[in-house]
Design a protein around this nucleic acid. Structure first.
Length: 337
DNA sequence: AATTCTCGCAACCGCATAACT
DNA sequence: AAGTTATGCGGTTGCGAGAAT
């Protein structure tokens, strides 16, 4: 006998997640910690596969996730790391803790891959330029140096990754309690329901809700589309706050009303346990979101610390230039080869 | 204004490995 | 130890939104 199936395959819902589902999922993780995915669908009444729940949590609801608008620095890091590690998105994501592997992968496939291709073509006509210089350097690295000592190179790379992980771990353990990883790594998830960690989740949901509400205002009342439940919620909510983007964009009362209406939904009440509804009252969420907003004023983002650290490691004594070849200075790391 | 095309992203699929009974 | 499922990861797909015609 093996494990019992994670969920009933029949009647499992697919497709985009609704805000109610998100809230149920976050509430569950708040109570039980991430990891008990198998029990989630039955305990919460969510008609989702446990795998789908885990993906939703890790990619979108997990606290501390930054979405959209990759910075130049992040872009450089991805290019650099992709060249070094290949399509090991999970490994690359270690260096960009606020980004998910899925997000990085998507960004690479939609933006960076094309960029590199273009630059590649440009270079064939006009010689080297910024990004291509990097790629060219790396191509050169992998081709010409492979003959010298590939094993040594791989070992060094592995050591570098391990060092990065170690430093990341240290940084996270020193980080304030809002650090998402503190929550995730806690030994006892039962006592993990610190308000700040949950606030980060609510912030993620708030962001998602804003998106829902925006889309609902633009899509004029076609609430009977295929995604009925979600669209219905969104349109109802937006109408309740007059559909004014100002209220929404501030994450202010419009959003709070959306939360309140969501928590008043029958579907949620019926499917969630008493415990869940206790700790996820709209009032509690309001407080946490406000708290979170205040903290953002003074907090140095974790990603900044890590990026600085990583870049410092890789760019010792290198003056900032436009040319990305300086990002990986092969001349300065002869011991690698 | 209507239709077609392109792009970006969320979610799913399939495989490899770990974990459980 | 063997069989079965969970988990993690990379690749791929489908859909919605905006641009182009």
């Amino acid at each position: 006998m093996g494990r019992v199936p994670c969920c009933d395959k029949v009647g499992v819902k697919k497709g985009p997640w609704t805000p109610e589902e998100d809230i149920i999922l976050v509430s569950y993780v708040q109570q039980h910690g991430p990891g008990n995915w198998r029990a989630l669908p039955t305990k919460t009444g969510l008609r989702r596969c446990s795998k789908s729940c885990r993906l939703r949590w890790t990619n979108y609801l997990r606290p501390g996730i930054k979405r959209g608008n990759f910075t130049d620095q992040e872009e450089k890091m991805i290019i650099q790391l992709q060249a070094l590690l290949g399509n090991k998105w999970a490994a690359i994501a270690v260096y960009l803790p606020e980004r998910t592997d899925n997000d990085i992968k998507n960004y690479w496939n939609t933006h960076l891959k094309k960029k590199m291709k273009k630059l590649d073509q440009l270079d064939q006509c006009h010689g080297s330029n910024d990004l291509f210089s990097l790629e060219n350097g790396l191509t050169h690295l992998s081709s010409s140096n492979s003959s010298t000592s590939r094993g040594q190179w791989e070992r060094t790379l592995q050591a570098d990754i391990n060092m990065a992980k170690k430093a990341l771990h240290n940084a996270l353990s020193l980080e304030n309690p809002t650090s998402p990883h503190n929550y995730i790594n806690q030994e006892n998830p039962q006592v993990s329901s610190t308000t700040t960690t949950y606030a980060s989740s609510t912030e993620n949901i708030a962001r998602l809700l804003q998106g829902w509400m925006r889309s609902s205002t633009s899509s004029t009342n076609n609430s009977e589309s295929s995604k009925t439940s979600s669209n219905n919620i969104a349109t109802t909510d937006s109408s309740s706050c007059d559909g004014t983007p100002n209220a929404e964009s501030k994450g202010g009362m419009g959003l709070m009303e959306a939360f309140e209406s969501l928590f008043g939904l029958e579907s949620f009440e019926s499917s969630s346990s008493d415990e869940l509804s206790q700790t996820t009252t709209p009032e509690a969420i309001k407080i946490e979101i406000k708290k979170e907003e205040n903290e953002h004023d003074v907090e140095v983002p974790l990603s900044v610390i890590l990026e600085n650290w990583l870049l410092d490691e890789n760019t010792l004594n290198i003056q900032p230039k436009n040319d990305l070849t300086t990002f990986i200075s092969f001349d300065e790391t002869p011991h690698l080869f």
